[in-house]
Simulated scan of single mutants.
Amino acid sequence: MLKQFIPFTQVKHQPTIIVDSLYPKGLILAHWRGAVNPPGTDDDTSAGIVLNALQQQIPGLEAPYVSANHFDVDGFVGVWSVLNPEVALQNEAVLRQMAIIGDFRELDLSQPAADKALKLVCWINKVEKEKFYPPFGADEVEDNEMEASVPKFAYFLATFGDVLAHPEAYQADWETEYNQVIADYQIIHGPQTQVTLFPEIGLVQIQTPQPVHYYALFSRTIGYDIVLSQYADNRYELEYKYTTWVDISSRTTLPRVPLKPLAQILQTQETSNYRWTAESVTDTGPILRLNGSKLPKKQRYANPTERPIYSSSIEPTDLNAQVMAYFQSRYAGVKPQQRWTWPEIKAFK
Rank of each mutant, 00 (worst) to 15 (best):
Asn125Lys: 10
His189Gly: 04
Lys126Glu: 14
Tyr170Cys: 03
Phe218Gln: 11
Thr252Val: 12
Val19Ser: 08
Ile58Glu: 01
Leu157Glu: 03
Val181Cys: 07
Lys297Arg: 13
Ser229Phe: 06
Phe71Ile: 01
Met1Pro: 05
Pro64Gly: 04
Thr268Gln: 15
Pro15Cys: 04
Phe71Val: 04
Asp103Leu: 15
Thr317Cys: 01
Trp342Gly: 07
Leu95Phe: 14
Phe156Thr: 10
Ser313Met: 13
Asp283Lys: 05
Tyr301Thr: 05
Ala47Asn: 13
Leu29Tyr: 05
Ser219Asn: 04
Pro308Leu: 10
Gly202His: 09
Ala93Thr: 07
Arg330Ser: 13
Gln171Met: 12
Asp184Met: 04
Tyr331His: 11
Lys152Ala: 04
Val150Asp: 01
Leu164Ile: 08
Thr277Trp: 02
Val79Lys: 04
Tyr236Asp: 04
Gln97His: 06
Phe348Arg: 09
Leu89Met: 15
Pro39Met: 05
Gln210Thr: 14
Leu197Gly: 00
Glu200Phe: 02
Pro85Cys: 07
Ile124Gly: 06
Gly223Cys: 08
Val127Gly: 02
Leu203Phe: 08
Pro151Cys: 03
Val82His: 02
Asn291Leu: 11
Gln90Trp: 04
Ser311Glu: 14
Gly223Thr: 11
Pro211Val: 08
Gln338Phe: 04
Val19Ile: 15
Gln299Cys: 01
Glu168Asp: 15
Glu315Arg: 15
Trp340Cys: 10
Glu200Ser: 13
Thr159Phe: 10
Gly48His: 05
Met98Trp: 02
Tyr214Ile: 02
Phe198Asn: 10
Leu54Ile: 10
Thr243Tyr: 01
Thr284Val: 09
Lys12Thr: 07
Ile100Tyr: 10
Pro134Leu: 03
Thr243Phe: 00
Val150Arg: 04
Tyr133Leu: 05
Val181Ser: 07
Asn273Ser: 11
